[in-house]
Structure formats: structure tokens, C-alpha cells
């Protein structure tokens, strides 16, 4: 579904990504793991064309999207959930969700998974009680849920999820894990950037591990979860 080859990215003169290649299949939940600064977030942003200096080949649904603009990529069905939430704090919950709204997509001639506010409220019940609350007046966990829900309003086929478990209360982490499992059940594919191996283990099928912008390991999530040597070498455990 998503195939990435030789992705490179720079911030100014500093190269951050050194040609990692990876793929995400239909209905798969894939983890992109690594320590702080390994290049996880940069990878996701580069896929969305949010980093001006980048090169490499990105194919989504057998189409080359490397040269498209962010909004065009989003309209192809690649949803992006940024790590720092970036909700519109002047807008209410309902308005935030409205900004994300896009038409229902089709995949192989059939309607792809689609979302309404009502359906999203069953996954994120906290949001149901506060449709008129401004983003600025929400807790970190609520904001995190809103960010995910807002992207889902665009009815994506594949979601790029950047560290949804970071900096939120344990109870929210649990809800977030449940939500990802729900997405998988709906038939969505997910590329999850994550540091927390326990969280990734709960939801992911396969994993790629980045270190200094290079791909260092890939394989089944279950194998990574038991391979203490790899974890010690590449992850902050």
C-alpha cells in the first residue's frame, strides 16, 4: 500500500534521514521505532511533504506521491497525526473535526472505512461531552484524542500516527491502544512512530527500528518484543 525507497531529508545543511526503505501493507499496523532523535517524526513528516528538503521515492496505492503537495497527499488518503497535536486551539472540538472532513474514499472499487462524528465518539467517548469546548481548554489527553479523531474525519486509508502515547496519562495510553486496535478492525492501515515498546507490542504486527536516520532492524513485532539485545542496542529501555 505504501512503499518507501531511499528516503532522505535535511534540516538546513544537516542530513537527518539516510535512505531508510520500508513498506506498509493493507490492513497492517507497522511500528517505526527508535530513540529520541532517531528520525521517526522526520520520516512521517517527509512522507507528508512537510519537510521542504527531501528526496527519495514514495509510492502510495501504486502512485508516485513524492512530488505532491501536503494537501494532495492527504486527499489521496494518507492521514497524518502530528506528535505535538497541533489542534486549532481557537476552534471548538466540533469545528476542529470539521476542518478535517473529507469525502469518503474508495479502495478497489469499494467504499473505504469512513467516519462520522458519532462513530468517532464511540471510540473517543471523552469528546462526546465537549463538542463546544475550545481546543485551548482541553487536557493533553483530550487534545491527543481530538488530533486522531480530526485526521480520521478525512476518511484516510492509511494513518501516520506520531507518538500518540507520549506525554499522556496511562489511562489515555490504554484508550489510545484500544482505538488503534479499532482502526485495524475497520480495515485501516497504520504506520505508528513510537518509543514505548510495550505500547507498540499491544497494537503492531511488524516493526522497523531507526537509529541516526538509518534503518537498523526490521521484522515481526513479536520478535522485537523478546529480543532484549536489539532493544538494548537500539531502543531506550
Amino acid at each position: 500500500m505504501l512503499e518507501v525507497e531511499g528516503l532522505k531529508a535535511w534540516y538546513g545543511a544537516a542530513q537527518v534521514l539516510f535512505e531508510p526503505s520500508f513498506h506498509v501493507g493493507h490492513g497492517e499496523v507497522v511500528a517505526l521505532m527508535g530513540r529520541n532523535g532517531a528520525g521517526k517524526s522526520t520520516t512521517l513528516k517527509a512522507l507528508m511533504a512537510l519537510i521542504p528538503q527531501r528526496s527519495g521515492r514514495v509510492r502510495f496505492l501504486d502512485e508516485d506521491i513524492s512530488d505532491l503537495k501536503p494537501f494532495q497527499i492527504a486527499r489521496r488518503g494518507l492521514g497524518f497525526v502530528p506528535e505535538d497535536r497541533r489542534i486549532f486551539s481557537d476552534l471548538t472540538v466540533a469545528e476542529n473535526l470539521d476542518i478535517g472532513r473529507q469525502p469518503v474514499r474508495h479502495l478497489d472499487g469499494r467504499p473505504a472505512p469512513s467516519w462520522t462524528m458519532e462513530k468517532l465518539f464511540t471510540i473517543f467517548p471523552n469528546l462526546r461531552d465537549m463538542p463546544d469546548r475550545r481546543g485551548a481548554h482541553m487536557s493533553g489527553g483530550e487534545q491527543q484524542m481530538l488530533t486522531v479523531a480530526r485526521t480520521l474525519m478525512g476518511n484516510p486509508l492509511l494513518v501516520l500516527l506520531d507518538e500518540p502515547s507520549e506525554g499522556v496519562a496511562p489511562v489515555i495510553v490504554e484508550q489510545m491502544a484500544n482505538a488503534i486496535v479499532e482502526l485495524k478492525k475497520e480495515g485501516l492501515s497504520v504506520l505508528l512512530s513510537e518509543q514505548n515498546i510495550h505500547f507498540a507490542e499491544l497494537v503492531c504486527d511488524r516493526a522497523y527500528v531507526l537509529e541516526k536516520g538509518q534503518l537498523q532492524w526490521h521484522g515481526r513485532m513479536a520478535d522485537l518484543a523478546t529480543d532484549v539485545a536489539v532493544q538494548r542496542r537500539l531502543l531506550s529501555v
Binding site: M48, L50, K69, P70, F71, A74, R75, F80, P82, R86, F88, S89, D90, L91, E95, N96, D98, I99, G100, Q102, R150, T151, G154
Partner: peptide
């Protein structure tokens, strides 16, 4: 209006609006 909401959202973070599929 949705147009108005888009204006307000873009005033705060236009890049994110673009990443959500809006033609900036």
C-alpha cells in the same frame, strides 16, 4: 461557515490545515 472555520484554523496553523487536505 466552513470557509470561516478554515480561515480561523489557517490563521493558527496553516501547515496543519494543508496536511488535513485543504488546498492552501
Amino acid at each position: 461557515t466552513r470557509f470561516g472555520r478554515l480561515i480561523r484554523a489557517a490563521t493558527q496553523d496553516r501547515e496543519m490545515v494543508g496536511a488535513l487536505g485543504v488546498n492552501q
